[in-house]
Nucleic acid binder design. Structure first.
Lengths: 247, 247
DNA sequence: CCAAAAGTGTTGAAGTTACACCCATGC
DNA sequence: GCATGGGTGTAACTTCAACACTTTTGG
């Protein structure tokens, strides 16, 4: 790394982020609306950017995440590298790249990440690579720019697998939450219904949740108990996973 | 991608392979001996190479694997991207790179893969990037060039996790094998002993093995039955995994 | 006949699934 | 008082973990 290169963009490597959120009902992904270019409709893409030469891959993903959401230090994990030589060569993508990149023809390999955010903490930010961002429900995502749909699918698959053995779901919830919210979260991520009683039993047995002395107020039904997660047991499960989480 | 670039090397992206083998006793990794450069000892590294501009990442990994082993179409899966800006800057690594790369200072992000090979099929090949290759037992691997030790660890972790839910172990065995061999394989990959009876029961219940009308010969103990794997059930488990594989 | 690895069953404990009704609140 | 979602227990079944002796062969 020669010093003249230190803070230049690397024109061949980018990072893209699949940022998941949960609105207590649906699983969402934060997408950016690409400025329309002549002859093509608006289209949605994952937030992403070229990396800097002096920047680790994780740092680049964190930068993208932070520029877009204002959040630091939240769950972020690599999905993998996507490098099909033709991943940028659709006509609509090329038209857009010509408008924003110095070298629109350059082959770019992207390193994909996924992140879990608490939607309450999210504050939209103006960012260098995104004019407007919006949360889109996963079942409404069907076409994305470049190979981003494929990346999104890989990220969702990784999330599904991971949530079966590690208690990462809490990253999508606020500090206080109800077991029903957690239940719904698991259902939407795994894409199937889970028995309410069995679910609660399992969570309580794993001891990753702890009930608070506080209940919902103002709801037109029996108020729900709030819980927080138990950091100690949470961390030990993050290390070891729980093998028999038979959803 | 301009056509003049079509078959040039991409100086910023490489692929590295962690190639696992099993000699019926130990889990091994195929490493290459880097030519010593003045002032530094011989050192071991993972096989790897820069990718070509017109080459998919998977293709590049397959090329490296094939050039080194003569094998095609075998198990190969991405581990992830490794891109620490200083991953190549140790003095011994720099000395070596100066001898073999046009741009030894270039920052290179590498995409790591792991592969499972049947050691009997392996035939050493002369290759552009390796003079000599050798199988090293996993418990003897402690230092590797660049960040390759970190990559190796990530690959092994991925293998451990994957073998718990998918029947990929067969890729490391010949067509005919005994249940004891399979048993030993699982033990060395997972790094712990497994009860013999419980192991056999589980494998037979999953129906991924089928006994052949053939036994070991010439062994100084009760001869062992040979098995092959059942491709049909194998493939359905590759799709679906087996959730409750509680090792 | 001895050494070496193959092969085989049972039992108690734990975990999984399926299932239906009462409760507390706001309106 | 009614609509809404919250909260609870049990029984049948499956899976898991632990454990020791007999068999077949070569030398």
């Amino acid at each position: 790394m020669e010093s003249k290169n230190k803070h230049q963009l690397n024109p061949r490597i980018s990072a893209d982020c699949v940022i998941f959120g949960f609105d207590f009902n649906q699983l969402k992904v934060l997408l950016i609306e690409r400025e329309p270019v002549e002859g093509f409709d608006v289209s949605l893409s994952l937030p992403g950017d070229l990396i800097f030469e002096d920047e680790d891959l994780d740092m680049a993903a964190n930068r993208i995440l932070n520029e877009l959401t204002g959040l630091y230090n939240i769950f972020l994990e690599q999905v993998g590298a996507f490098g099909n030589p033709h991943r940028l060569s659709k006509a609509s993508d090329q038209a857009w790249l010509k408008a924003v990149r110095q070298k629109p023809n350059e082959r770019v390999v992207t390193i994909a990440y996924y992140s879990l955010v608490n939607m309450n903490d999210y504050q939209p930010q103006a960012s260098s690579f995104a004019k407007t961002a919006c949360w889109v429900s996963v079942h409404e995502i069907n076409e994305l720019a470049f190979d981003h749909f494929e990346i999104y699918q890989a990220a969702l698959k990784k999330l599904k697998n991971k949530i079966k053995t590690q208690p990462i779901g809490f990253n999508l919830l606020p500090e206080k939450f109800t077991l029903s919210q957690l239940h719904r979260l698991y259902e939407v991520i795994l894409g199937r219904t889970l028995d309410k009683r069995n679910f609660r039993r399992k969570m309580l047995k794993l001891k990753i949740v702890e009930s608070l002395d506080e209940k919902q107020e103002g709801v037109p039904h029996k108020p729900s108990q709030f819980f927080k997660f138990n950091e100690l047991n949470y961390n030990s499960l993050i290390e070891n996973g729980f093998d028999n989480f038979g959803f």
